[in-house]
Nucleic acid binder design. Structure first.
Lengths: 346, 346
DNA sequence: CTATTTCATGCGAACGTTTGCATAAATTTT
DNA sequence: AAAATTTATGCAAACGTTCGCATGAAATAG
């Protein structure tokens, strides 16, 4: 393909009989240019089908007006919402987003980060999860503004900020809600393949139990195997199995790590012929799209993934313009729906 | 922020006491360079923390090794899977992806396309939906390899190709499956806000009815209002309402436009105390994550969204390397699960 | 030991912009 | 009418690469 060379500022300059600087200024609405020349050139540019070369502009200006976002997988609706928020906000700020998924592999993350640095993105939003020792070391070399989502910032990069949800508090809310409904035999169904948030939510649950003078009974704490396949079905199946076990222990309420696990718990109750919420209460986490379509509709802890994406981008944009930004922790909130109710007198 | 200038090839050249061409060649493993100089320079580059500037490289080479993908929204799992496929395949081919969502607004699409052209992406995957007249006209000016997903190619761009699913055939499969199970009063629950595919699936359904000498009874064809809100809940609610209406007409089976509509249909049956699949059969479309977690599990038409994304990117990559590519139509397939069964003798 | 080939390197242009500086023309001030 | 100012334009360097061409050095051939 000969690919008829694209038309550049020089071509316009030639056609208009002026220098390329003049064309450049005219196209940028510089005040240094007489108004008639400007309009003439702008018209000409349009007629000739000129499209500015952002690569050249970036090279010159040292600003690419692009950001990279790294997530583990886009098939998790939580991340999907997150990047949707990022993308929306980015568009509004005139930024374009590179998107890459790491499949939760640190090496992959490093490679992606490398690539983003080559492409001279202005900054990165990193919503992937694992940061182990070796990884953190490699991470030191990154000379880029970074917003870490749901992960604490380590290292001495001055432009490294973090935005997270308060999982501890979310866990407390969920447990407190169930407790307030009169439940005392509350089970926790966790996912071991999300170690960080899982631990914090569990911790919140345990704090509430302790606060009310209930010893944390280990038979009410359930965690999935490590190797549950990613995706809705994996969570669902794990949730169902854990819920069956918890129900067999006599739990009257189950706090699930996430909504898809809770969907599994609902299925478990159906299988045991236990009515939700009359006999068993179930609470999820995330407030995903699933909640309103389950039977019964799912009480859950709302995580504003969309807002979080937006905010992450706004923090990044602030950093880029040199404004100071503070690390932020967002609070989740309880959304009551149909799957929780006062404990029966079983 | 002074942002200590990044280290460039020239810096390495100075440090090594050679010319920048030598450095460039050394870093690119050119055979024109003595092996000891090459290793020395590569080590030096690593030590100095050199990161190549892809902008400059692209400017020079006229290839950015990036592609743009435009979808309507990422919160639709179908599109999420699609871009996941694109991204995977892109990584494998050494391409980086720009992602943008159009919210189904043609003007937005144009703007995004414009932006991609500025950034000199090598090609675009366009999985947005609407192409009306005015839009098509603007589209003529695009001088970029484009793969259109689920949309026919119009216009004279030689590098415009298309990849689609055969919705007609999918509709036939669904209807044929229900017919083969003995159902005769088969309803269709469509979504009017996806006009193209909705029409084709319906058409497939009607073709099957006709083929078997059943007149298409209009009371068995239901379509949602235009203004159903995007997202799972909207589809679900619309599906539930349509299903209620169809059940009232005496339908013994319902073919739903998509899985989330089918989820609504299942809820409708539960509300009417009709057992699925014993009394009513429900079939969905997409084979989304939802299917295995519904009760009963959902029989559906499989759309390989992930594969489609991969394939779209591969087609694009082929186009980029000048190989000829043919427009492709993929066949869906039937996935039998728990929501369909032989018609009862009602 | 000179003539030729091979090998390794440097020079400089090019990719498409933007922008500081110089300059010419037009305008205003004395 | 000359001097000072403003206005509009051009020149050329710079951003960080790559690559064709020229060139000097080393190796081989005669």
């Amino acid at each position: 393909m000969p690919a008829a060379r694209r038309i550049s500022i020089k071509d316009i300059a030639r056609a208009a009989g002026v220098s390329s600087s003049t064309v450049s200024r005219a196209l940028n609405d510089s005040s240094l240019i007489s108004v008639d020349v400007r309009t003439r050139i702008q018209r000409l540019a349009r007629e000739m089908g000129y499209t500015p070369n952002a690569l050249a502009q970036s090279l010159q200006s040292n600003r690419s007006h692009s950001v990279g976002v790294i997530i583990t997988t886009i098939s998790d609706p939580y991340f999907a919402r997150l990047v949707q928020g990022v993308e929306e906000a980015a568009r509004q700020k005139g930024l374009t987003v590179f998107m890459a998924t790491s499949s939760n592999d640190p090496d992959n993350e490093i490679r992606i980060l490398e690539n983003f640095q080559r492409r001279r993105v202005d900054g990165v939003i990193l919503a992937a999860s694992r940061i182990d020792e070796e990884y953190a070391r490699k991470f030191e070399h990154v000379r880029l503004p970074v917003i870490m989502v749901n992960n604490q910032a380590t290292g001495q990069n001055p432009d490294l900020h973090s935005l997270s949800m308060d999982d501890l508090s979310g866990g407390e809310m969920a447990a407190e809600h169930l407790y307030a409904l009169g439940h005392r035999r509350i089970g926790y169904a966790g996912m071991r393949n999300r170690p960080g948030s899982n631990a914090r939510r569990l911790q919140g649950y345990q704090a509430v139990m302790r606060r009310h003078g209930l010893e944390a009974r280990p038979e009410f704490i359930c965690n999935s195997p490590e190797d549950v396949p990613d995706g809705l079905e994996g969570d669902f199946t794990a949730g169902k199995e854990m819920a069956l076990a918890l129900l067999d222990q006599g739990a009257s309420a189950i706090f699930c790590y996430c909504d898809s696990v809770a969907a599994g718990a609902l299925a478990a109750c159906r299988e045991r012929n236990l009515a939700v919420p009359e006999q068993v209460s179930i609470i999820g986490y995330d407030d995903s799209d699933l909640c309103p379509i389950l039977t019964p509709t799912l009480t859950t802890i709302h995580q504003p993934a969309l807002d979080m994406g937006r905010m992450a981008l706004q923090m990044l944009a602030k950093t880029l313009s040199g404004e100071p930004v503070a690390d932020t922790v967002l609070q989740p909130s309880l959304v009551k729906r149909g799957s929780t109710a006062p404990a029966g007198q079983s």
